[in-house]
């Protein structure tokens, strides 16, 4: 058994440069959580639930099936990039207003998918919203209130 190889990694998370040393097979999800980006959730670790969704160069995808080393040099955005306590992002305001969450565990991924959707389609129809979030599983809400919240932001309500 030889020593495992480690590789240097440098990427930008929420505008901040993060460096580290990782094994070849490490996922971006594990790398982020190991670096205390705990807002990125591990629900299934196989790309089936969407809880670990982040934006990579503007596109929403599952970080559990993304090789950390492939994120080398890229811009990663997690939920923490959206808003702050004093200045919630309109999507965050809408999720609170429309009660688009219960346990909140799918919320970090759901919000990032919604963000990516609105970035490319600012006024999405309900069906487009349902399509966009179809890779983000929610077991609490039945989705209606989530779709309501995203739709409201699309309408410019918040």
């Amino acid at each position: 058994m030889g020593e495992k190889e480690y590789y240097n990694i440098k990427l930008t998370v929420n505008g901040k440069v993060v460096t580290g040393s990782v094994r070849a097979e490490i996922s971006l999800l594990d790398f982020l959580r190991d670096n205390n980006y705990i807002e990125v959730k591990k629900g299934c670790d196989k790309g089936d639930c969407g809880a670990c969704t982040v934006l990579i160069d503007g596109k929403a995808t599952v970080s559990c099936l993304t090789s950390a080393l492939q994120a080398q040099g890229k811009n990663i955005y997690t939920l923490k990039s959206l808003g702050s306590w004093d200045k919630l992002h309109p999507l965050q305001k809408a999720f609170v207003k429309y009660e688009a969450l219960q346990c909140g565990f799918c919320t970090p991924g759901m919000l990032m998918t919604a963000k990516a959707l609105l970035d490319t389609n600012p006024h999405p129809a309900r069906e487009s919203i349902k399509e966009a979030i179809s890779g983000n599983l929610c077991r609490c809400t039945g989705y209606r209130k989530i779709v309501d919240a995203i739709e409201a932001v699309g309408r410019g309500e918040l």
Partner: peptide
């Protein structure tokens, strides 16, 4: 699949 996987 779904949009998240299609991006990958």
């Amino acid at each position: 699949a779904n949009p998240l996987i299609r991006n990958k």
